[in-house]
Computed example of a mutant assay.
Amino acid sequence: MTVSPSARREAGAAPSRWQVLGWQLGGLLLLLGIWWLVTDRLGLYPPYVFPGPGAVWTEISYGLWGTGPQDGKLLAAIGGSLRRVLTGYVAAVALGGVIGLLMGAWLPLRATLGAYLTGLQSVPSIAFVPFAILFFGLNERAVLAVVILEGFIPVALAVSGALLNVPPTLRTAGRTLGANGLELLLRVSLPAALPNVLSGLRTAWSFAWRALVGGELLIAGAKSLGEQLEIGRNTANVALVLSTILIIGVIGGVFDALLRLVEGRVRRNYGLEVNS
């Protein structure tokens, strides 16, 4: 039976995806309108301090598909940053997954290493950059080290916590069916913990992406979004800085949305959510 929109609202049902998308697009248009009004119409700030949407869009278009000798730099920077963050993120997920499994299976490790990782998670990623540079040198390995460190901690804590939240009845049923030890962990506990693990993977992505940009700010000469921010600062090109910030936000949001879609599908398959 199809439920009308009015009945859905009266019942307190969650809004559909299209409704949410409409609200988001409306909010974006409102922000762009306010930005245009403040800069291009009212001129409250000079362009070299706060450029308007047109100037930022021009910088983006030159940086992404321009044909001049200095154009296309943003596109190259996006490619370099994505390569680094995906490499670091995959390594962080693999390392965090193994450590999380070990913490979930062994109480002494969870009581010691888990507490240390929880404390490290509260340290801003930029605080690890000086140590990484002193240890690895002023190169790409230092950036990857910070990305891996920031990414694997939420994965390890999410896997460990998800395993602890598996209902004991599932483990009991698994033992009844003959699963023990590693088989019980891999075939019963881990599949049951998967929805919560995916939440940790999404958190790890946001941590890794922020850590990447912070590390890239200090690595000169590498094609990266962090370098573009530094170039904009050194040349007082506020439009370049704003365009790079927008690109960083869009890329981070797109990857988060993709991970959210996967997480939502898994949660619906597990019966934890219903289709809106």
Rank of each mutant, 00 (worst) to 15 (best):
S4A: 13
P5K: 00
P5N: 05
A7W: 04
R8C: 01
R9V: 10
E10W: 09
S16I: 07
W18T: 13
Q24T: 12
Q24I: 13
L25G: 07
G27A: 15
G27T: 13
L32K: 08
L37N: 03
L37V: 04
T39W: 09
R41V: 15
L42C: 05
L42E: 02
G43S: 09
L44G: 09
P46L: 05
V49G: 00
G52I: 09
P53I: 11
G54L: 15
V56P: 04
T58G: 11
I60W: 11
Y62S: 11
D71A: 14
K73L: 13
A77T: 12
I78N: 02
I78R: 02
S81K: 08
L82C: 10
R83N: 13
R84H: 07
V85N: 02
L86S: 12
V90A: 14
A91G: 11
V93H: 08
I99E: 01
M103D: 10
P108E: 05
P108K: 03
L109S: 03
L113W: 05
A115M: 09
Q121W: 08
Q121T: 02
P124N: 11
S125Q: 06
I126W: 03
F128R: 05
P130G: 10
I133N: 06
F135C: 02
L138N: 10
N139D: 14
R141A: 12
A142R: 08
A142I: 11
V143F: 12
V146N: 10
I148C: 08
F152W: 14
L157K: 06
G161K: 06
P167Q: 06
T172D: 14
T172F: 09
T172I: 07
T176G: 15
A179I: 02
N180P: 00
G181I: 09
V188F: 06
S189Y: 01
L190Y: 08
L190F: 14
P191G: 12
P191E: 11
L194D: 07
N196I: 06
G200V: 13
R202L: 10
T203F: 05
W205I: 07
S206H: 02
L212S: 08
G215K: 01
I219W: 13
K223G: 04
K223E: 14
S224N: 04
S224Y: 03
E227G: 03
E227S: 07
L229R: 00
I231E: 00
N234T: 15
A236Q: 12
N237Y: 00
A239W: 10
A239E: 05
S243V: 10
L246K: 00
I247H: 05
I248F: 07
G249T: 10
V250P: 00
V250L: 15
V250H: 01
I251F: 08
D256E: 13
V262M: 11
R265Q: 13
R267Y: 03
Y270S: 03
G271M: 04
E273L: 15
V274H: 13
